[in-house]
Every structure is written in C-alpha cells, then in structure tokens.
Design a protein around this nucleic acid. Structure first.
Lengths: 137, 137
DNA sequence: TGCATTTCCTATTAAATCGATAGGATTAAT
DNA sequence: ATTAATCCTATCGATTTAATAGGAAATGCA
C-alpha cells in the first residue's frame, strides 16, 4: 500500500506544478486545496526540499517551488524520496539492496525471481512518467 | 514492502511444487527447509488452504498439497490471497475497490492516474507467471 | 525597530499493522 | 489408546504510520 505520506506528497507536487508560475506556493494553500492535514504536509514538503526536488522561501510571501521543470522531475526520483525502495523486497532493490537472512542463494529463490520482474515493470512506469504527466488534467 | 507472510507463503508453495509428488508435505518439513518459524507458517498455509489453493490431510502422514497443477496456479490469485490488493491505492483496485475520502474526482487525481499504470504493469507480470515458473530452478 | 507571517525542527502520541508465539482442540493412522 | 499431524483462537511485543504540539529561525514590511 502507498503511504499517505507519498500520496500527499504526489498531490502537493502536482498542485505546485499546476500553479504554473514560479511564485512559491504556501503550505496552507496546498493543504486546503488538497484536503491534507497542514502540519503533516509541512513535514512532507520539508523532506522533498531536503532531497532537492523542492526549493523554499521563508517568511511572508514564502512557500515552496519546484527546482526543475515538471517535465524533468521523474517519478523514480519522487517515489524513492517519499516511499523509499521501489522493489518489494530489499534483496531485489537497486538503490537500497540488502541480503535476506534466510535465503542461502538468491538465484534459487522463487520470490527473488518474481520480484525482479515486478520491480522492472514498475520501474518502467516510473522512469517514463514525469510530474508534467501527472499535472495534465 | 512485501510482507513476510507473503514471502513465506510463496516459498512454501514453491517448496511443495518442487516436491513433485502428490504426497502431502508437512509444515515442519517446509519450515525447516525454508527457515520459516513453524507456527507462523502454519497460519499461512491455513489461509492458503481456505482460499482453495492448497488441500490438506490431517493426522499422521498428513500435510499440505496443491489442488491444481503448478502451471495452473497464477500469481494474481496467490498474491491476492496472501498480500491482498495488488493495487497500491484502494481507489485503483479491481478486486478491492474503495473510494478515497479526499479526492472529489478520481479522473482529475494525479495519484490515481499514476497508480493505474503501476497496477496494470504489475498485473501483467502476475498474470503471466505461474507457480510452475517459480519452481523452475 | 518591531510585528506578522511563514518555513523549519524536534519531540511526542495514538492507532494500526506485523511477525511471532502459546495452548490446546480436532482428526487420522497404526 | 497413542502418536502425530492439522486446525483454531487469542495474545503479545515491536515497529511503523499518521498526525499533533510547540516553538525557533528567517523574512517582509510598516
């Protein structure tokens, strides 16, 4: 299941992208527009900023803005920041690899085999989708 | 992330499929062979039996066996029984659909759009993979 | 300078889920 | 009968998730 964090994050990014201009968008505005608890959203936008996807401006007339054009923001990047590994098991993750405690040999493991296929097909979607795609209605 | 339940369940099914014969396979044997806590595995095999994928025989020389040929057991079925919905959000699930509380219009929702694609590509993998594929080494 | 506004940061909480265990009831073979 | 297996329910502890609280830091403007 997709976490609320990721869901809210994607909605917020879309909201900012749809705003069009380069003016920073305020958390409160997004929270109201997308029905997201404001304090929770604050923390989500903060991690998006720390990851480099968003920039921010403090104080009056402050807010968050995209650091790149929406067409250059890939879902692979966004999903990894918000949701973590794209793979369903660590032993199949490209960016967050970890060996299983059980599993003497990954090449013989049926789960491993299946999950590599799922990872690749999911990756294919994320690699070919940008924030621009999401923000088109 | 894939739950341990699903991971163990897939491994157990593979173990049974690899055993080849129609003789029931005992929980203890699988648990030992695949490094799975026996009591936990018991409950997993029970749900697989209740779903109709496995059959069981009680008492001495009892155990679990496949109700169909491995080549006829699709991953769509197995995954739905063990892991639940294949979709990452309920509003996109074919078998477990639920409307979002937020989200006035699904057709305008960027998350919805993206997750439909992910669902379809994952489904494509599960639809084209059987237990037989998993059990080939 | 001072005040209002907004992001930034840390800590805490409540609820849900997950992984595992416990203990015994039921069924079947010998 | 005895033994060996599945079956069933309940519970527990740990982790994660979603959300809240409270205030620090920075910025714009009168």
């Amino acid at each position: 299941m997709l976490s609320k964090k990721t869901k809210y994050g994607l909605k917020a990014l879309t909201f900012i992208a749809r705003s069009g201009s380069d003016m920073p968008v305020q958390v409160g505005e997004i929270a109201r527009g997308e029905q997201i608890p404001q304090k929770f959203l604050e923390s989500i936008l903060l991690t998006l900023r720390k990851s480099g996807i968003l920039g921010s401006k403090k104080g009056k007339h402050g807010g968050y803005y995209l650091r790149k054009d929406p067409s250059e923001i890939l879902m692979t990047e966004v999903m990894r920041v918000l949701e973590g590994p794209i793979a369903m098991v660590p032993c199949v993750s490209l960016n967050f690899y970890e060996k299983c405690d059980d599993c003497p040999d990954e090449l013989l493991c049926s789960v491993n085999k299946l999950m590599i296929q799922v990872r690749d097909s999911t990756l294919e979607v994320f690699k070919n989708t940008t924030l621009k795609d999401l923000s088109l209605r």
